[in-house]
Amino acid sequence: MIAVNDIHKSFGEAHVLKGITTTFDQGKTNLIIGQSGSGKTVFIKCLLGLFTPEIGTISYDGKVYTELSADQQRELRQEMGMVFQGSALFDSMSVSGNVMFPLEMFTKQSKSEMQDRVDFVLKRVNLVDAHHKFPSEISGGMQKRVAIARAIVMHPKYLFCDEPNSGLDPKTAILIDNLIQEITEEYDITTVINTHDMNSVMEIGKKIIFLKDGLKEWEGTNKEIFKTDNEAVTNFVYSSDLFKKVRQMYIEERN
């Protein structure tokens, strides 16, 4: 579990995060949603340890990041996996090389042990024929799968995804969502997903945090988001006519 306690983050005059307190549960897909500029990316970068909040603490299963030594912080980082918006695969390495990279860097496994683990995770993300291809030779959806494989290869306790569906067609986006949810439940990972995708919110939002102007405006589940009266949330989530109709039908059905 990740516990966030009253974190503030500023860049010069811009006060981006203004005191967020929340928890991200283990074995669940926790979603952060909000409009552009609401502080989602800064928040996830604080969770990753890439930014240090001026005020407040973030603890990972009881370990407060800022109270750890540099070596302990590095060890903790090795328990984190990250899927970047643009996949962030290393261009100079093959698919297999990308996934093997964390193992080569941080473990003392033999080459064959590493290869077995790489084969296993690539099979887990349904990529079996792409080992020797380079990132430029595969599709966006496949790149996302490789990024997920690289993120889980070290058995992470925490998985962070920054807009994992951006740039993907709806069908592939659903596949990626389902894959992340399956992996989260299968390995009991604390998963935090930064997203704009309303399909993801409805499908895999076991816990949803809505940010507005650097503050937590609302928190709940994908079931609760249908019923909420919070105007900011409904305006954001049901911004399209289709979603407004879906919500209306849902409420009428329940009544």
């Binding site: 340890g49 090795q78 990250m82 918006q85 643009g86």
Partner: peptide, 12 residues
């Protein structure tokens, strides 16, 4: 392309 961020997140 965030490859440097990816390295830093891994603890490299």
């Amino acid at each position: 392309t965030e490859q440097i961020d990816a390295l830093e997140v891994m603890g490299v």
